[in-house]
Simulated assay, not measured.
Amino acid sequence: MPPDTALPADELRAWLRLVHCPGLSPGAARRLLAAFGSPQRAVAAGAGAWREVAGADAAQALQQPSLDPDALFDGTRGWLAADPARRHVLTLGDPAYPGALLETADPPLLLYAQGRIDLLALPSIAIVGSRHATPGGLDNARAFATHLSQAGMVVVSGLALGVDGAAHDGALAGATAFGGGTIAVVGTGLDRVYPKRHHALAHRISEEAGLMLSEFALGSMPLASHFPRRNRIIAGLTLGTLVVEAAVQSGSLITARLAVECGREVFAIPGSIHSPQSRGCHRLIKEGAKLVETADDIVQELRLPLPPTPPTAGAGGVPDGRSEGSRRDPLLEALGHDPVTLDALSARLGWPTAELLARLLEMELDGRLARLPGGLFQRRGAG
């Protein structure tokens, strides 16, 4: 049974005014809380005290708020009342506030949560990566997340397109009555879904084995400045961060850097030396991230109990590409594991073009092969 997280009305109103006051920085809000001991006393202290503790800019922001505090309070209270069992506002003193975040340099003063807040107390791993992931990257994200969820870990990601979405989906598939599940940390208010394409996924997370989490007020739009702040929560919530695929300049590498700053582990999956989406992972490995080939590598590194290995997959629940079919199929052998052109396949196999195209189409329809931009083909999973 999760702890009761309901806030008294006067306390909720004070927290919202203090945390969401435009022009009042998180640092200034923290100083006010430390000086006065509670948000109610901080808000009631008056302009002179605000100026003395937090400076002139903070005092002016609180005196002339550009955000209607009454509308913010009424909207938040209505949102909570619509589903009190699954919707919560968590503050620093709440029993349900995640302890891992409290250990970071900049913990959010307030979190909105929708779904299973008990997941915040379970061991968790972040899985992040490219929004433009390859089919192989999506398969790896989903398979690693499924296996780690089956192992009782909560998979944390950011609900973005690509690797994030695949990780959430895999974690939901692997959740059991004994643990697992997923947390989506988002860069909007919880009454919005971004990207819109993930509306159904967000609903599944909040209604099934998952939790939606945000530090942004209801109604907040997906502003560019929100996502680096979201990334620090993803890194701070977890025991470690797994980067599946990432370009050299990517938000995933920012999350990995934030994980290091929090004293957490960083893991990376290696890929083709020819793939731009592997270069970020290779850089992380050069800088000391732990190279992983299976989900069990992560479980063992974090000293968690090993789950049973599914009988249809290689170690760690990730296909290892050594099935009987892959040894016997010359087309799979010719495809290898890197993207390849039709001309290169034709040269490797010596097959007539019509026959080769027919086989490629058959494999694509079976889900064993993906057709990529630029006339490239790539095998999927153990395919």
Rank of each mutant, 00 (worst) to 15 (best):
S149G: 07
L148Q: 03
I127N: 04
A167Y: 01
P135G: 15
P98F: 02
H132Y: 12
R142C: 11
Q114V: 11
T104K: 11
G158L: 00
L101P: 06
D94W: 05
D164C: 07
A171G: 08
H132W: 07
G137E: 00
G99H: 15
H132D: 08
A167R: 01
L109T: 03
A145D: 05
I125G: 04
S130F: 10
G162W: 00
D106M: 10
P135M: 09
G162C: 11
A151L: 08
A121N: 07
R131I: 07
D118G: 10
P123K: 09
D139R: 06
P108F: 08
H147M: 07
P107W: 14
A171M: 08
S149Y: 09
G162Y: 02
T134R: 02
D164K: 01
G115R: 02
I127E: 05
P135R: 14
G152S: 12
D139E: 12
T134Y: 03
L122I: 07
G129E: 01
H132V: 05
R116N: 13
S124M: 13
G129H: 00
L109D: 04
V128E: 04
G136Q: 10
A105S: 09
I127F: 14
V128F: 09
L159D: 00
D94G: 10
A126W: 00
G170M: 03
R116E: 15
P135Y: 11
T134S: 15
L122V: 08
Q150E: 10
S130G: 06
V155E: 01
L111Y: 12
T104V: 11
P108C: 12
D164I: 02
I127R: 03
S124Y: 15
A143W: 05
G152F: 13
M153I: 07
D106H: 14
A167K: 03
L110P: 01
A167G: 14
L92K: 05
G136D: 07
L109F: 11
T134F: 05
D94C: 11
P95Q: 09
L120Q: 12
A143H: 12
E103V: 08
G99L: 14
I125R: 07
T134V: 07
L122D: 13
G136T: 10
M153D: 06
V154W: 00
E103C: 10
L119K: 14
G115E: 03
P107C: 12
V163T: 15
I127A: 06
L159P: 02
T134N: 05
H168I: 06
D106E: 15
I117Y: 08
H147I: 04
E103R: 15
D139A: 14
E103D: 13
I125S: 05
A141N: 06
A160N: 06
L148E: 06
L102T: 08
L148S: 07
A145E: 02
G152P: 09
A113V: 13
A141K: 03
A171W: 08
T146P: 00
G93F: 10
Q114S: 14
L138I: 11
G115Y: 04
A171E: 05
V154H: 01
A126S: 12
P98G: 06
G137V: 01
G152K: 08
P95T: 11
A143L: 09
V154Y: 02
D169N: 14
G137D: 02
L148F: 13
E103M: 13
R142H: 14
A105F: 11
P107K: 14
S130H: 13
G115I: 02
Q114T: 13
F144L: 15
P98L: 05
A133Q: 04
P135V: 09
